[in-house]
Design a protein around this nucleic acid. Structure first.
Length: 279
DNA sequence: AGCATCACCTGGCTGC
DNA sequence: TGCAGCCAGGTGATGC
């Protein structure tokens, strides 16, 4: 499931591919990928436009166009954005819902079995070139950084389990199920700790853990898992899955203290953590 | 207001 | 082995 590191890896791929390219044609075949506007409207807004440099906040890609509009793409659970050279020779994968042909002959393809992913084009844009929709997002650990002071302010007054706060995109943008568990482990905090029980020192450690886990995962180009097999633009796997400390490792020894990693439940969600060294 | 829960969807896994 | 049913998971809507 793509989170910040995976989406950032895709963005970096787009950076060397999109700027200056013009959209020749757009084919929308899936029913749900384009739902905020009609497929015809999306096609009309995109066709003939040139891309600028691709941006990202949290898990949202923001692909700026030469007329000031922005193409927003969210991969959600199972979305893959693929760049295909010589599209005539490459068979279209099952669950391909959008294909955008570029003026250099390449094609952007959006493959998404679970159909949660979304594309839309908006002209409601802030001075920084990002969609106004992004106003509700918290700071992005990579683009904005997450200091202890900022995190403390964002958590103030919240009484939710820590993991719920970390995955709340209004608190911090870009963290999902996987990286929340990893961050909690590095910070030695249980995912089900109530946020209002955290000390100032713990929030400081949490902020540092957030930055370091995200930075390392970006460096290793994200995590590719068994089921929602994340791949980058060129179809390559990430390698951060080899560094996972607790995520999906129930029963295996905690890499810090050796105790067996547990799968715990709170509410409708699960979390992986070490019962011994996470407090 | 803020928190919890649900709906959305389908491939893959579990268990009988 | 086959198959029914469960589960995952981000976000926005709905309920409390």
């Amino acid at each position: 499931m793509p989170e910040l590191p995976e989406v950032e890896t895709v963005r970096r791929g787009l950076e060397s591919l999109l700027p200056g390219r013009r959209v020749e044609s757009v084919k929308v075949t899936g029913r749900r990928t384009v739902r905020r506007q009609s497929p015809a409207e999306l096609r009309a807004r995109l066709t003939g436009r040139r891309f600028g440099p691709p941006d990202r906040r949290g898990k949202f890609l923001a692909l700026g166009l030469d007329d000031g509009q922005v193409l927003v793409i969210h991969l959600r659970m199972s979305g893959q954005l693929l760049a295909v050279r010589g599209p005539g020779r490459v068979p279209v994968a099952p669950h391909t819902h959008v294909r955008a042909r570029l003026d250099d002959g390449a094609e952007l393809r959006f493959v998404d079995p679970r159909t949660f992913g979304e594309w839309y084009v908006t002209d409601d844009v802030r001075p920084d070139g990002l969609p106004s929709d992004f106003d509700r997002l918290g700071p992005d650990p990579l683009a904005d950084g997450v200091s202890a002071a900022v995190l403390a302010a964002r958590l103030a007054g919240k009484r939710t389990p820590l993991k719920s706060a970390l995955t709340d995109q209004r608190v911090i943008a870009g963290i999902g199920n996987l990286y929340a568990d990893e961050i909690c482990h590095v910070a030695r905090l249980r995912p089900d700790r109530r946020t209002d029980s955290l000390t100032a020192r713990e929030v400081k450690v949490l902020a540092a853990a957030t930055s370091s886990v995200i930075a390392e995962a970006v460096r290793l180009r994200g995590s590719s898992l068994r089921d929602a097999r994340y791949v980058d633009l060129m179809g390559e796997y990430g390698s951060y899955q080899h560094e996972h400390r607790v995520y999906d490792r129930a029963g295996e020894p905690c890499p810090r203290c050796g105790a067996a990693v547990e799968k715990i439940r709170f509410g409708a969600r699960v979390a992986y953590c070490c019962p011994s060294c996470q407090l």
